[in-house]
Design a protein around this nucleic acid. Sequence first.
RNA 1: GGGGCGGUAGCUCAGCCGGUUAGAGCAGAGGACUCAUAAUCCUUGGGUCGUGGGUUCGAGUCCCACCCGCCCUACCA
Length: 551
Amino acid sequence: MASGTGSDTPASGEQTFGSGDKTFYVTTPIYYVNDAPHIGHAYTTTAGDVLSRWHRQRGESVWFLTGTDEHGQKVMRSAEANGTTPQEWTDRLVESAWKPALITIDAANDDFIRTTEKRHTERVQEFWQRLHDAGEVYKGSYEGPYCVGCEEFKLPGDLVDGTGEYEGQQVCSIHGRPVEYIAEENYFFRMSKYAERLLEHYEAHPEFVQPATARNEVVSFVRQGLVDLSISRSSFDWGIPIPWDSKHVLYVWIDALLNYATAVGLDSPSAQDKEKFGRIWPADVHLVGKDILRFHAVIWPAMLMAAGLPLPKTVFGHGWLLVSGEKMSKSRLTGIAPHQITDHFGSDAFRYYFLRAIPFGQDGSFSWEDMAARYTSELANDYGNLASRVAAMVGRYFGGVLPEAAEQGPAEQAIVDALAATVAGADEKMCALDFQGGIAAIFDFIKLVNGYLTEQEPWKVAKSQDEASQARLATILYTAAESLRAVAVLLNPVMPKSSAALWESLGAEAALGALAGQRVQDAGRWGLLPAGSTVTKGAVLFPRLEEPAAA
RNA sequence: GGGGCGGUAGCUCAGCCGGUUAGAGCAGAGGACUCAUAAUCCUUGGGUCGUGGGUUCGAGUCCCACCCGCCCUACCA
């Protein structure tokens, strides 16, 4: 977790790829505590975790933030329904559900922010006070249909005719529940005046909103013009009070978005926080589900522009997980809890599957059967088995001591070359958030090594005791083991547990040090794993799983 | 209502600006091998390319209409 303070650089020194002192900053959305964590949330967090681990593996300074969004009417009401206070309610949910979900998927976040924390609420108040003082906020009133589920006022077009028990009423098209008519005084943020600047920004920075399809939607939305944004509510009090008018609380989104800045020290008086903010801000990547893309690609940058703060580099809207063709829904109880999957497949497989099987940015269908098939074919058969057969042969033929390679032939050179290409390709793709492509590149290499072994038939070579054969055998097994050394490094960000097991199995730490200290940039350098390393055949990396548990 | 995306082998999907026998992975079938997690490697794909028209010497690949699913956006007060 939080590595604390100061400008901590990686222990192994050598700061690479000089993007100055800027820390690579990745965020997930802060999740609304009222929902139960499901694999859709875990998907975003996994992506953020893999991305941040990848950059750490590159030797960069990285900050990975996640957290919870805890204000708003929906939370307040469910707290009431559960006979408790909102604060107690959120405390309970955060501790019992949200933080454990991070452990479930083996996420290594640097910080976890809750919007009920003082470091957030105080800074949010200051932020809006400043915008208010600067004339960016004015008082107005608003009247209209309000959906408690969405926490927002709806336009007539957002409503549909109700069915069933709500027959004859107008209901929210998203939640299918009746809206309430609310009239209240509100404060408004002059967002409309930023439309032009936003469009200029989209134009000048095409990478700001990704993928391109999402960007196009955002651009066409803003082109139609923006209206000023209501930023307060006065009909309930579970929120951050507006400092100049405590009858109002800030609209939950307006409060929540600021977490990305408050968590890294925005406006904090402490010198330490100032330094931290200067080093980390702005975010390099905000990962969001495409449903909340607009908040992040329109409202959020407009807020930052108003405050004169630098904008994040990229907001990436990823796709939905579809379960039997339908979007997994928070409000329709089709959500699958992450532990239902990790209990059976483990966290490594969870992380692997969702990033490997689904192009990030597109919707992807999830099914237990597909996951089981990929687990067996790709993780157990291709990858795990390769590690097993190599370790077994080094054990059987060389007593577990990695032999020195003799002369390399064309077959070995092909592996060496392929590895270099794999590292370069995977690095490029992972940095571009093409997790599917990056992981596929690594696994193509694994398949190649399997093929290499089958062709070289070391078990046959081993039958001859003459020196040439033994040298040849040594070369083959060294080549395979050294390939696995690189694979362990490349897969460490994706599957930390099995990668650690492989590192251990290869006896790599003795000579090379901790796995976390290996650089992606060096992973393709041949011959790093020294002869003499102690190779042991540990537990299999991905045991075959028998009964697919009931989905 | 506009706009966009998708509908291709059992499954998940590739197929760029139209051109010889429509591809990959997985599953299935056959073979090789035995170091390994009954794993690996090789070989193997007779699919109305949603439907109906059209353009063209030639169309999943362009045009029109329609059907299905999804997304964005808007209005008939």
